[in-house]
Computed example of a mutant assay.
Amino acid sequence: MSLIVNILIMAAIVGFAGYQIYRAVKRSKQGKCAACDYDCEAKRMMDNAKKRPV
Rank of each mutant, 00 (worst) to 15 (best):
D47F: 03
K51S: 12
K43V: 03
V25K: 13
E41V: 07
G31P: 01
A12H: 09
V5F: 07
G31V: 02
M46L: 13
A35K: 05
K43A: 06
I21T: 11
V14A: 04
R27H: 08
R27C: 04
D37Y: 04
Y22L: 14
K43W: 04
N6F: 13
A12I: 05
G15D: 06
M46A: 09
I4H: 13
M1G: 08
C40S: 06
K29G: 06
A24F: 00
K43Y: 10
A24S: 06
K32M: 10
I4C: 11
Q20T: 03
V14F: 14
C33E: 11
C36V: 04
I21A: 05
A42I: 05
V54N: 10
A17R: 05
R44W: 09
M45S: 02
R27G: 10
A49N: 10
Y22N: 15
D39W: 08
A35M: 11
K50E: 13
A35W: 08
L3F: 00
M45T: 04
S2R: 07
C40P: 06
D37F: 05
V14D: 00
K43L: 05
K51M: 09
P53M: 03
I7Y: 03
A12Y: 03
V54G: 04
I7P: 00
R27Q: 13
F16I: 09
K32A: 15
K32H: 04
K26Y: 12
I4M: 10
G15K: 03
G15Y: 01
A24E: 04
C33S: 13
G18L: 03
K29N: 15
L8F: 09
I9L: 15
L3W: 04
S2N: 11
L8V: 06
R44G: 13
A49P: 03
I7G: 00
K50I: 09
I7C: 05
I13C: 09
R23S: 01
L8D: 11
I13F: 03
G31N: 05
P53R: 07
G15H: 08
C40E: 09
I13L: 10
V54P: 15
Q30T: 11
M45C: 00
A49I: 02
Q20S: 14
C33N: 13
S28Q: 15
D37S: 12
D39E: 09
R27A: 13
Y38S: 08
D37N: 15
L8K: 08
D37H: 05
R23W: 01
S28I: 15
R52A: 06
R23G: 00
I21H: 01
A24P: 00
K50R: 12
Q30V: 08
M45F: 02
A24C: 00
P53V: 02
K51P: 07
A34P: 02
I21G: 01
I7N: 02
V54R: 05
